[in-house]
Amino acid sequence: MITAGIDVGAKTIKVVLLDGGKILAKTSVLAGFETEQSVEEAYKEALAKAGIERSAVGKVGATGAGRKAVAFAQTVVTEVSADAQGAVFLHPSARTVIDVGAEEGRGIKTNADGKVVDFAVNEKCAAGAGAFTESMARALEVTLAQFGDISLKSNKSIPMNAQCTVFAESEVVSLIHSNTSKEDIARAVHDAIASRISAMVRRVGLEQDVILVGGVAYNIGFLDSIKRTLGIENVVVPQDPEYVGALGAAVVAGAAGN
């Protein structure tokens, strides 16, 4: 049976079409203001990419903060469950899932079936999330991709307040004024986020394999920092990490009874 997973995030809507163990198509569109319309657009695009009709999809699953916008979904799950399912689907030995999205960072402990055993999510402050990296990159006047790259060039550890985006930004400004290099500042920012995320991971209990999903997984500076703060060599980054939630929603839809 072909199933669809739709992840309605704060910034983008992602769709994955799944046929048993095979991914048929992935699409992503900006969420915009008319979420239902954007969902429709993303879904149609995915169907076209896979070359199938709407009627060929047996089940639709939705996830993400705006999951209610998928009126035609038969199953609806939270991002936490979808992440765990998607991660275990891609990497069956994954037991810890780290998801750093635009507004939320999560540490999830899963079992071999992709069932959530425990989870921790950052509180209302965005400092543990991707939006924080973006705002810090802006403060340094570099692109997000450059921000990751340059931090690898630093080998200095500068402690930074990771509790609050506003305080951290003012700290970055102080560092700029004290002529700290962009490389060192970028690493300090990644270390600070990684330290918050790894606290969440430790709260639920670190168990290997660890898989990093969500858009921030593309950031090689953050990847380096999270490995260091967790004290592990291997953190798995799947292909297209930002689609793991949508994939999980498709898996859940497929597993749901008729």
Binding site: A65, V77, T78, E79, V80, S81, E104, K115, V116, V117, D118, F119, V121, E123, K124
Partner: peptide
């Protein structure tokens, strides 16, 4: 953050 707390309840219930 009330909406986020509700969403956390959703995740907890699912788990």
């Amino acid at each position: 953050d009330y909406p986020r707390t509700l969403s956390r309840i959703d995740s907890f219930m699912e788990s």
